[in-house]
């Protein structure tokens, strides 16, 4: 019963995420892109626009990306108990 409920919940969550992704009409336009391209060197001091974006403009993205790696390793150490784990 619990498995069925969890399955339904996960399926609904997936459908909701897909629905939100398809129906939202937000666009950032070209203003923000041209702002990044012309001002990233003065704003962040980087010579590489990708580094300027992922270490300064979009810092939350990098933090949660690192968190995903940490959480996946915690999950792996927790669930894979095979062998002589300490």
């Amino acid at each position: 019963m619990r498995t069925v409920l969890v399955s339904i919940f996960v399926a609904l969550l997936f459908a909701g995420v897909v629905f939100l992704y398809t129906v939202h009409g937000e666009t950032t336009g070209v203003d923000i892109a041209s702002y990044y391209i012309y001002n990233f060197a003065a704003d962040t001091g980087a010579g590489n626009a990708v580094a300027a974006i992922y270490l300064n403009y979009r810092m939350y993205d990098t933090i949660f990306e690192a968190l995903i790696l940490l959480v996946s390793i915690i999950a792996m150490l927790h669930f894979f108990r095979a062998g002589g784990s300490k």
């Binding site: 001091g45 580094a51 300064n56 690192a66």
Partner: peptide, 16 residues
């Protein structure tokens, strides 16, 4: 700014 970028890249690199 540039030491910050280098330090952050080292942190992320060591973590990964």
């Amino acid at each position: 700014k540039i030491p910050y970028l280098i330090f952050m890249n080292f942190l992320i690199g060591m973590k990964v």
